[in-house]
Design a protein around this nucleic acid. Structure first.
Lengths: 226, 226
DNA sequence: AAGTGGTCTAGACCACGCA
DNA sequence: GCGTGGTCTAGACCACTTC
């Protein structure tokens, strides 16, 4: 009884054994289906999964090749900060440091495509068991917020957004930087300490939603399997 | 003509419109297939994709729910360093700083499950247009290497491995750290500069392959979309 | 026990992208 | 043009999980 996971395993085994070396063209779906005694759809499922993880490269008409210079893919989870803290078994806390309505710096407005418009600016400190965990700098499109605004001292903007604006697209970037004066002060560090920074930009289909910069306390690691 | 992507779009639209609010149970596959006039397999494909990206949560018997506290997923590419440099339009260079056979520190041997065994230790500097790009510290299982060893002054260990050992599993972690003395020297920085660090551990099905730490020059950003 | 999603089949048509 | 992978169908059986 061969399922698609068995087919995938067998294909992987042949690649590892170099029966199908890097760059090689492997047999078509029809041929493999016959060889393994399964339907073509089952082979397709197995090969599609391997293509998604970067092991194979598939193109119509050209066929399926073993990736010569594989770009492996890993999946990252992007949780809400409260969930991340609670998953570590720590108590989550939130402190709103600043709330203002003003024009964002050019770096933010250009990135979101919102020129010369006032936005909501939040600075929030997230705590894990009372200790600083992340300091968040966020710019929000006022059009996505109700009037009056949610109480961001009670619920983080992140959490409010996923519950009320729901399901956006965006991009995310990670870097290492020296902590600025304000960031260091919020996290209780000395200025210039190496900190892990996450920057996210999100859009609804019709309008920009938010730009956010998260500065993590030292020791933070982002990890996953592949 | 409704394909699975159309179904996915329609489901997303209903979630955004809050016809199906966060946490809600949505109709079963059979019901949706009838409503949209497609086969159940088509609905299944659409809902499965949404579950893979964290928008829906599916369990047999329990049904399909809109994620209440969504953990969005992003896919990261893990390219070979040479490809990464060349993708930026820069010339790739490689300098082998050190090659020795010795026992790894406990942090590495424990991580790989290779107690008290000698491993190959490499320190390599990767260059982009002649400038330091990444300094790499790598421990290799000797059993995966041929005798004599490949010339790691000519081909990076990473590149040799993907071409000859091929398709492993592993884990990857990112962090921000102050550059150590040796790392700073290799990259031409002052000690303590904030650097972006990648640590990877990889295994073949039967044995450990390698542990590697990549210290990136300042300004490095890891980014993706979601 | 029963309902739900997960998978498989056999067949079909289609879209893409090489030649 | 034409071969390959991508998708769809209608039906079936199965696995998991809640009841």
């Amino acid at each position: 009884m061969a399922g698609w996971e068995d087919i995938r395993a067998e294909v992987m085994a042949r690649i590892r054994a170099r029966a199908w070396p890097p760059g090689a063209l492997i047999p078509g779906e029809e041929a493999l289906a016959q060889e393994f005694g399964v339907a073509r759809a089952t082979v397709n499922r197995a090969l599609s999964e391997l293509a998604r993880t970067g092991v194979l490269e598939r193109r119509r008409k050209a066929g399926t090749r073993v990736a010569a210079m594989p770009v492996r893919k890993a999946t990252l989870d992007i949780p809400v900060i409260r969930a991340e803290v609670e998953a570590r078994g720590e108590a989550y806390g939130l402190r709103l440091l600043r709330l203002e309505i003003t024009r964002p710096p050019l770096s933010v407005s250009a990135r979101l495509g919102m020129d010369s418009v006032q936005m909501v600016h939040l600075r929030t400190l997230h705590l894990a068991s009372g200790r600083p965990f992340v300091v968040e700098d966020r710019w929000l499109n006022r059009k996505v917020l109700p009037d009056p605004m949610p109480d961001f001292a009670e619920i983080s903007a992140n959490e409010w957004l996923v519950a009320h604006v729901a399901f956006t697209t965006g991009d995310i970037a990670f870097s290492a930087e020296p902590a600025s004066g304000a960031e260091a002060e919020a996290l209780g560090l000395t200025e210039g300490t190496a900190v892990f920074v996450t920057e996210r930009c999100t859009w609804a289909p019709d309008q920009p939603i938010t730009w956010v910069r998260l500065v993590h306390a030292p020791g933070y690691r982002l990890s996953t399997v592949f």
